[in-house]
Design a protein around this nucleic acid. Structure first.
Lengths: 220, 220
DNA sequence: CGGTTAACCTACTGGTGAGTAGGTAAGAGT
DNA sequence: ACTCTTACCTACTCACCAGTAGGTTAACCG
């Protein structure tokens, strides 16, 4: 995924702090994703990063602070990737579709990031899960706004804020979960997984079993 | 959730092995769910169980074996709860509905079990995740069969096995995920959460934003 | 009431990993 | 060339925890 340092031999080359910090975070995400927070050791992270342990502490603080930094960085990267993917002045279903594509695209190309963000962060309690909850909250807000706007264009009065928000929560949850499932079934291409979720949540089984499917408008 | 032993004072009362084993598993589920596999210590589990550490090893073997026993027991309990809840000779949507109710009912009354099953087991690799994958596989099979049957009753030719199975996977994933979300929003009653998912996957947003909702047939 | 079994204990070992003390050298500024 | 800063290191300490050795007492059986 990220290029690994060759095996450490003696002293590492001197590099400016900002560069080292990035390398350390890359290494930490890699190790945390493979082993989980507790089983990951600072020794291993330092080794993968190509430096010695005291550097970790000098630059990123304690193990917990390092983990939190990983989560923050990856969460930000992901939200930016999604924001870059949506097409704001399209109809709601197309917006949802492009958001899903961007999301699954990111996860596919950054499996380690997703592993850390979703599985690790949420199974540690406390401030880590909170960091995640914050990101999820923003995502839910976006989807809820989409739904509200979508029901405004129809002239149906009934969709309230709470209704929209909880449906959005369910959809975001479904997305997280499907991405998680995808980690264990990596054969499928991102587009297929995204399309599957799109159909599920937009059409519903009730329509699908009758042969009604949703498909994207064919531009490009 | 489970009644805790009062504080250990000296020697514990002598009890038959089967009873102690159950107490130990109860304690282990509790501790694993709160702390996760790695952070949980055998000392703490033994303390919560009201016995001393060597008893754990005498009865349930190593830490890993103990964890695996927890997963197996809780997975079995859950599948049985769901099986007991479905009503086999109802139409597909009602079957799905009763399955969802049973599922969320179980999770609501056994949050610790769910925490161990879903979050902990899946974030440890290897044999633990495999144990889970097996259970999930069975659940997916059930739902897929339901969907296939459901599309047979309509005279639509197109739903193949693979299609049904991947949709089932998505639905099961959505259920897992919504249950997970629910852990952090315990205020909602089980029925509401179940109904939300039912509507999402059966009707889809496309219908919901137009005011079409699914509701259970009103028996009782 | 002895004797056997099985439930139960205290008290250790060995290993591992977080975090630190204290020192070395590479490059920048003068 | 000479110092100063800062990137970088080796080599520890200390705590915690999985797993065990070896001993104790309660119940049951004759």
């Amino acid at each position: 995924m990220h290029a690994d340092q060759p095996v450490r031999t003696g002293r590492a080359k001197r590099l400016p702090r900002a560069v080292r910090e990035r390398q350390i975070l890359d290494a930490a995400v890699d190790v945390f994703s493979r082993l989980g927070f507790h089983a990951a050791s600072m020794d291993e992270i330092s080794e993968v990063a190509g430096i010695s342990k005291p550097m970790l502490y000098a630059y990123l603080g304690s193990k917990e602070e390092l983990f939190a930094s990983c989560i923050r960085r990856e969460a930000t990267r992901m939200m930016e990737a999604i924001a870059a993917g949506v097409e704001p002045d399209q109809p709601p279903d197309v917006q949802l579709w492009s958001g899903l594509r961007a999301f699954f695209g990111f996860v596919g190309e950054n499996r380690a990031s997703w592993q850390v963000l979703h599985r690790q962060a949420s199974s540690q309690g406390g401030p880590f899960a909170a960091e995640l909850a914050d990101m999820r909250g923003r995502a839910i807000g976006l989807v809820a706004a989409l739904l509200l706007h979508s029901s405004e264009t129809q002239d149906v009065p009934r969709a309230g804020d709470a209704e929209a928000e909880s449906l959005a929560a369910a959809l975001v949850g479904a997305g997280e979960s499907l991405a998680d499932w995808w980690l264990d079934h990596p054969a499928e291409p991102a587009g297929v997984v995204a399309a599957r979720l799109m159909n599920l949540v937009w059409m519903g089984f009730g329509d699908l079993v009758q042969g009604h499917v949703w498909h994207p408008p064919n531009r490009r």
